[in-house]
């Protein structure tokens, strides 16, 4: 066991050293580990942003919003369409920043509006019905969104490969530089992209916390999450509050979708299922319904994925994540930060 691990780390090291031909410094095991941690945290922040969407909706109507991951897929597809339509690859200098901001905002508006619409059309009519009906409806919405993304990929645009290979993964142009901030000779790579992920996600998380803690809407959201009937009796428009939750969660998903596309440079119509399950696992691991829990869970899942890719094998990574999901649900359904809830019958 120990030998194999060492052998794997060694092979990783040599692979790392040969692939970065320009770097004279051979990567020690600590460098490899730090690199995995950096990648893990960056991916984890993206997962966390999506996980917030799951946890907010679950907190307020106890629905696992299955469609959330696929909503993010559509956000990425919208971003790619905009890149192609406006020729953003050619925008340079300040134009590049403007392009990224345009993408972030338009995807956020689009995903927020779409999530609100899904709630209005598919979920709101089922309020008060058994929860399983709602969950089945959410799975249905997820499948519809996947199919829309598949058709979207067949759009006859150059960025979509002319639309001939609709189901194939699409290359997302790298609008953000991949240059190493620590200098070309450093063994560890921290790119503009890693920085970009942090610059966008952290303010969003802080803003959301402020919104939930300190605004009138946030107070109403917490009230509805605690007891919808009592909240309605106190004059809160429950449906409006639930609608805004979907809107905000969707908008965060929209931000995440653009960050994901810019960070990973490739999108596909099925990616929402995978990222969605990662994010949902993160939400459960952190304690579903808890916002800090979603962030912590997201970063943990990002790290687990990176370490599993590096030290186990990439083909087992999804199983590892699902294993964590099942073990958390079986042994600690309230998650790391979730409050201990007594099951109501």
């Amino acid at each position: 066991m120990c030998e194999t691990l060492v052998a794997m780390i060694l092979s990783q090291t040599t692979a790392g050293a040969t692939s970065v031909a320009g770097a004279q410094v051979a990567m020690g095991w600590s460098d490899v580990l730090s690199q995995q941690l950096i990648t893990g945290v960056s991916n984890g922040m993206i997962i966390a942003l999506i996980a917030i969407g799951y946890t907010m909706v679950y907190g307020i109507i106890e629905l696992i919003n299955f469609a959330h991951g696929d909503l993010c897929t559509l956000g990425s597809f919208l971003a790619l369409t905009l890149v192609g339509a406006l020729g953003m690859e050619a925008w340079s200098g300040m134009g590049g920043t403007a392009a990224v901001i345009t993408l972030l905002i338009s995807a956020a508006i689009f995903c927020g509006a779409l999530n609100w619409t899904i709630d209005r059309v598919a979920y709101r009519p089922l309020r008060g019905k058994p929860k399983l009906a709602l969950l089945v409806s959410a799975i249905g919405c997820s499948f519809i969104l996947v199919n829309i993304a598949l058709f979207w990929g067949g759009l006859p645009m150059e960025v979509f490969g002319g639309g001939n290979q609709a189901a194939a993964p699409k290359d997302f142009p790298s609008l953000i530089s991949n240059e190493n901030l620590l200098g070309a000779r450093s063994a560890i790579t921290v790119t503009w992209r890693d920085l970009f992920v942090v610059i966008v996600t952290v303010p969003l998380m802080i803003g959301l916390t402020w919104l939930v803690k300190s605004t009138r809407l946030g107070k109403a959201m917490r009230a509805v999450a605690q007891n919808p009937t009592a909240a309605a009796l106190m004059g809160i428009d429950v449906n409006r509050v639930i609608g805004s939750t979907f809107l905000i969660g969707g908008a965060l998903g929209g931000f995440a979708s653009v960050i994901y596309a810019l960070y990973n440079n490739t999108i596909s119509f099925q990616m929402g299922y995978r990222t969605g399950m990662d994010a949902f696992t993160a939400a459960v691991l952190g304690g579903i319904g808890s916002l800090p829990g979603a962030v912590v869970g997201g970063i943990v899942i990002g790290l687990v994925r990176a370490l599993s890719d590096g030290y186990i094998e990439a083909r087992w990574t999804n199983s590892v994540v699902f294993g964590i999901l099942i073990l958390t649900l079986v042994f600690r359904p309230s998650g790391i930060l979730g409050a201990k809830l007594r099951e109501k019958v």
Binding site: A122, P125, L126, A133, L134, V136, S137, I139, G140, C141, S142, F143, I144, L145, V146, N147, I148, L150, F151, A166, A167
Partner: peptide, 16 residues
């Protein structure tokens, strides 16, 4: 390429 859409619509419409 239509299967997801058909399955999804079936689930949503039947539940509704």
């Amino acid at each position: 390429n239509w299967k997801y859409l058909v399955f999804g619509l079936v689930l949503v419409v039947m539940m509704r």
